Amino acid sequence: MSSLLYLHGFLSSPASVKATQTRDYLQQHAPGVAVICPELENSPARLKPQLLELMAGHAELSGGDLRVIGSSMGGYLATWLVEQYGGKAVLVNPAVRPFELLAGYLGEHINPYTNKHFALNQDDIGHIQAFYQPTLARPANYRVLLQSGDETLDYQQAVAHYQGAELCIEEGGDHSFVGYEQHLPSIMRFLYLQ
């Protein structure tokens, strides 16, 4: 049985629209693919142990067989995983250097999906920066979906960072990536899941 790992973004959850659309699509078109969609830790210090435990607990994801979709911060984490374990990733409006952006988000937060309260402090920025991959060993292992209207992230950062990857750049849209569900057939083909 094949597995797909889906990593949601900051202040999101497995109940996000794109995660739900991904599960629904596979249930209908490739029911043999299991979707692993963890609720990522809000605390950056707990993210790396969570991801390492996840990989250790799912042998089918390692050995170069990792197939992952990552949205925003999830795209940043997916890049780290592919660089560590091999495999292929589709990144949706990925964060490239979120440690720079999150420096403006220090303080108290509530995850709108889970209602969990947490705080971001300066140490957390270092934990996020530890995932940064300045260069990619195999850019062709990435397909990057970008919309120029992303109000949260500068899509040009991703264009520069993922040179050599399969880039799909659409004019307009927003950070949620409008029309994501229409890309699911090509996403699954890229990941060899359909």
Rank of each mutant, 00 (worst) to 15 (best):
G87S: 05
L26E: 08
E41H: 13
H109F: 10
D124S: 04
S43F: 06
L102T: 01
L81F: 14
Y25R: 06
G86W: 08
E83W: 10
A30G: 07
T20M: 02
S16F: 01
C168G: 13
P44W: 02
N111E: 05
D124P: 02
A130W: 08
L26K: 03
K18R: 12
L26A: 12
P44Y: 04
R67Y: 05
E41C: 07
E166G: 07
P44M: 09
M1W: 02
M188C: 15
C168H: 15
I36V: 14
Y105Q: 08
L5P: 02
L106V: 00
Y25P: 01
S186V: 10
T20V: 04
Y113C: 11
M55Y: 12
L66Q: 05
E60Y: 03
G179A: 14
D154E: 11
F10I: 03
N93K: 02
H29L: 15
T20I: 09
G87V: 03
V96M: 03
A34F: 02
F190P: 13
E108H: 15
K88G: 12
G172S: 04
P38V: 12
R143N: 07
P134C: 13
Q147L: 09
D124V: 02
L193V: 11
A165H: 08
E166N: 03
A165R: 07
L145Q: 06
L26H: 05
Y142P: 13
L66Y: 03
N111Q: 10
T20P: 00
A56C: 11
G9E: 09
V159H: 10
V33P: 00
S13N: 11
R46Q: 14
A19F: 01
H161E: 11
A119D: 11
G172F: 02
M188I: 08
I187A: 12
G104W: 00
K116M: 05
N111A: 09
Q84V: 12
A59V: 11
L77C: 11
L184H: 02
P94K: 14
P185F: 15
T20F: 01
N42P: 05
E83P: 01
E171R: 12
Q21F: 00
L4Q: 07
F177R: 09
P14L: 00
F177C: 09
P44R: 04
K88N: 15
L106F: 00
L120M: 05
P49D: 09
G107R: 08
G87D: 10
M73L: 13
T114N: 09
P94H: 12
M73C: 07
Q156E: 14
E39W: 04
R67D: 09
L193E: 05
A137T: 06
G64M: 06
L193K: 02
N111C: 06
Q156N: 15
L193N: 00
E100V: 04
T152K: 13
L136S: 07
P134R: 15
H29Q: 15
G70N: 10
H109C: 04
G70D: 11
N115E: 01
N141Y: 10
E151K: 00
L81H: 07
Y162K: 03
L52R: 15
A56L: 09
G126A: 14
D154T: 04
R46P: 05
S71H: 13
G75M: 09
Q194I: 15
V90D: 06
G107T: 05
G74L: 06
L61H: 04
F118H: 06
A165F: 12
C37W: 03
